[in-house]
Write a protein that binds this DNA or RNA. Structure first.
Lengths: 253, 253
DNA sequence: CGGCAAATTGACACATCTCAAAGCCTGTGG
DNA sequence: CCACAGGCTTTGAGATGTGTCAATTTGCCG
């Protein structure tokens, strides 16, 4: 669950250490695979809150990885409503889906300030031709996304708003901690209540009232851009959080 | 969008033609790839309504493909509630996810009578080591599942129950038609209103009333186990159905 | 024909939304 | 250093959607 540092080398501005951490939490990488990832050609870009990094209905030629900050998948409806179908944290190869789907069925936007790396599809194609194990790990990352989608479906469909928010906080904390981007039950969460409402499928007003209930219960505090989980055990029990779907077990894949 | 038949050979009881149709709707297969799929070692099994074909929290050694009938992914909550997070039609490699996730985060159940094929993971591993293109197509199938999950999230979060059901019917019809399991705007849908409620995150009573509204609008009829879409154009417009997420374009992947 | 599961209906309770206003922060310009 | 603007959060009140419970009807199968 720690960021990988090799032989004393500091985490470099120019490598994809969080992605490596994402994989190494779930399987072992050979030196050569780690090297492939460290040298993966890409371009960097920073986005401001609400900026679109990938647009619906386009056909991207590269896929993005979150390096810093948060991103989300967004679908816009005709009546002006919006659904956020996923949140992505550093180390997430967000847009790997586009490598196979070809056409975007949604947008990817920045929540708060967000740094990402864009990897050309020809690089992914090359890896998929030459490195079966690394390919399976990429594949795994998209399949974990699917598992998270299912978990969100269960939350939105059958849990109370209170449980839903609690569940989301458990999930985001664990995912951040896995790549070394959170510890001590605290994490940066630069998300407005309006954005939260679009994740939960609720109105802003209701989100506001629900958060107050959670605060009153003493499980969690969300103040400005910082979330503090005061009692993870009770929060996860309350929301029936079962981390199986995050596939955090280190095992050959 | 048609079932593939090679040189007059009828669709065999012992091959995975719907899976091949699923792929050939989205990319071309070489003869050798088609042969690999046709000869893919597997065992067959039939399940009755509501039977579990894969159980939560187990670690499967094989993954299943739907051959006939419908299957669903199910999550059971402590209070007895249930969420169905996906429906699967013939040709869907439902449980391919388990090949990479290792542990099930949900169950797979039969909706009505359902025939499936179980493929051993060692076969999938072999293909992933030896056949990059076929591997990408398997990968694609899981990534389409993820896209469908996102679509369901949008429906459940931000569309009206009426739109949600309409959207679901558009989706299921197209998916069935793609593998040759439906035509003429009619398809078998052996799903109870209670099961539907668990897909939509609603109560049975509300589902019942919503269906009546849809019938009254004249868009669609759901009688017993048969759904007839009376006006696909209006049904899809009404539910803002955009098939992009099904990735039905035939293009190299 | 009887029995059971599924579909349907009605009445009422409650959750959630909408609209509108007020309060609270934070950054900026005077 | 203060005043203000704008975005976000919070509050209140009333409308609406959806759930629950319980009873009735329908349809199918033995």
């Amino acid at each position: 669950m720690l960021v990988v540092r090799r032989s004393g080398v500091e985490m470099s501005e120019h490598s994809l250490q969080t992605l490596i951490a994402f994989f190494e939490a779930r399987d072992s990488l050979t030196d050569s695979e780690r090297e492939t990832l460290e040298r993966l050609p890409h371009r960097r870009h920073s986005f401001h809150r609400n900026e679109e990094m990938v647009e619906t209905h386009t056909r991207p030629k590269e896929s993005c990885i979150v390096l810093k900050g948060l991103a989300a998948r967004a679908v816009y409806l005709k009546n002006g409503a919006r659904q956020l179908t996923a949140v992505h944290v550093p180390g997430d190869f967000v847009d790997l889906h586009a490598f196979l789907l070809k056409f975007m069925d949604h947008s990817v936007i920045a929540l708060g300030e967000c740094d990402v790396a864009f990897v050309p599809h020809e690089q992914l194609l090359r890896i998929s031709e030459e490195q079966p194990h690394l390919t399976r790990l990429f594949w795994m990352s998209t399949v974990i996304d699917a598992a998270i989608h299912r978990s969100w479906l269960t939350c939105i469909g059958r849990r109370s708003p209170e449980q839903h928010i609690a569940h989301l906080f458990c999930e985001v904390y664990l995912r951040l901690e896995t790549v070394g981007a959170a510890k001590d039950m605290t994490f940066e969460f630069p998300v407005t209540q309006a954005e939260m409402a679009d994740m939960l499928g609720l109105s802003v007003v209701h989100v506001n009232r629900t958060i107050q209930q959670l605060r009153a219960k003493g499980f969690v505090n969300w103040d400005g851009a910082t979330v503090t989980i005061k009692d993870f055990a009770r929060l996860s029990q309350f929301s029936e959080f079962d981390p199986t779907y995050l596939s955090l077990m280190k095992t050959p894949r």
